[in-house]
Write a protein that binds this DNA or RNA. Structure first.
Length: 112
RNA sequence: CCAGAUAGUUUGGUGACUGCUCGCAUUUUGAGAGGAAAGUCCGGGCUCCUUGGAAACGUGAUGACGGAUAACAUCCGCCAGAGGUAACUCUAGGGAAAGUGCAACAGAAAAAAAACCGCCAUUUUUUUUAUGGUAAGGGUGAAAAGGUAUGGUAAGAGCAUACCGCUUUUUUGGUAACAAAAAAGGCACGGCAAACCCCAUCAGGAGCAAGACUAAAAAGAGGUGUGCGUUAAAGUGAGUUUCCACAUUUACACCAGGGUAAGUUGCUUGAGAUAAUUGGUAACAAUUAUCCUAGAUUAAUAGUCAUCGCUUGAUAAAUAAAAGAUUCGAAGUUUUAUUUGUUAGGUACAGAACCCGGCUUAUAACUAUCUGGCUUU
RNA sequence: GGGCCUGUAGUUCAGUUGGUUAGAACACGCCGCUCAUAACGGUGAUGUCGCAGGUUCGAAUCCUGCCGGGCCCA
């Protein structure tokens, strides 16, 4: 079993690729997009990105949402996430009010 | 106790588990958001345009006076005006006697005055009408060419006098704005310059996505046409024009072709912070000592849970004071204050992005001093 | 991060420079025409001029500060 690497998506092009050709899952707090990469440049890595628009709030609120999602992913990625996949989470306004445990269970459901 | 004014401080703590960025370094240790980091409204540093010097015009900004500062539209002091019972606050606060312009409607008249209703005189004479005097009163308007009182007059009027205001001059105080006093002038000189403008002072433009380097690729050094020899051409500085100076020999136009955003650097030691002393009313300056205090780039500085603070409301108990009823007294009742427990909330505004000095806006809690009012002694 | 533009009826725009009346078209309401609808004709309403201060006798317009919307950079 090779070790799994976690990386973040940083380029705009990658985000567009995921949103165009990936599968979408909707929940109360966020939208998840999933896409399997064909190029084998980075083997055995999971890449994840976050999209939080300016409509949701100021910089403080956006940062807080991002941190919460990041910790959730860090806790669960070894168990649930598949390698060679790209994930993008688009956050909603409700994700700020929602409970941490509730949000975590939602993420696990959609990732499967 | 209530209401207000000014100045300042802080930005919750502890623990557990799981984590992020940078530096040293090689497995551990050190550091890690703000008073506004915000808005991008001003002023600088820094970089490029770029390898010079000056003048005129134009454009923009600022505007009492004196200082502080690298600089400013900032700050300090002071003056004037306005607001407030007061503490205190606010003011784009030069020039309307250089010129041009504006003032709808109303009103007789909106600026070298003029006369609608009036008032008065003369003529006529019951009145009307006409001519002249007048600007007290009425009316219009945001604004009507000093105000009040007395005298004076045909009626009136700075026509005269007193006080106030205004203008000019002198003296005194002050660095100055300005203030005070005295004398003179009978008043000639209304408002708007955040209308054009005039005066004084200042200002080149663009911005760290500036700019520099590395790698890759392509080009440079490809083609065609036109003009061409020191008298000239075009260039160097920015908005325009002109003058001087400078260095250069090819210059200009068109066609064809390439590149589509990688990395490093700029990047954090600076008009730096803290403390003391000295000078200054103060802003601030000088000297000495100590300290190094974020550098990300889908963008770190935290997430979850527990608990303790702080604070608001509800509720229960205890203690203290007051009230009226009953009255020998106590318990009990109501109100207020304090303490303790339980429970439900709240714990702001908000996240560095090259760096500083301000301004403006958003906001939680606390402290000190001062002012006014109420109550008690 | 930096630079720039723009906000007026329900919608699309005039008016702003140069201060004293807020307008046009479409849409909307009512009436007429029609057996009925549309079209057509008549008529009517519609605005804190993005918000808050200041200058002025007077501000959509001039000045200052906020708020919203949009664009650009290598």
């Amino acid at each position: 079993m090779p070790t799994i690497f976690l990386k973040t998506i940083k380029k705009r092009v990658d985000f567009l690729k995921v949103s165009k050709s990936g599968k979408k899952f909707f929940t109360k707090g966020f939208i998840l997009q999933k896409y399997k990469r064909t190029v084998g440049l980075e083997k055995d890595t999971i890449r994840i990105g976050f999209t939080i628009t300016k409509k949701i709030g100021g910089a403080v609120i956006r940062n807080k949402i991002k941190r919460r999602f990041r910790t959730i992913i860090r806790e669960i990625f070894t168990k649930y996430l598949k390698k060679n996949y790209d994930y993008v989470i688009i956050a909603n306004k409700k994700s700020l009010i929602m409970d941490y445990k509730e949000l975590k269970s939602d993420v696990i459901k959609t990732v499967k």
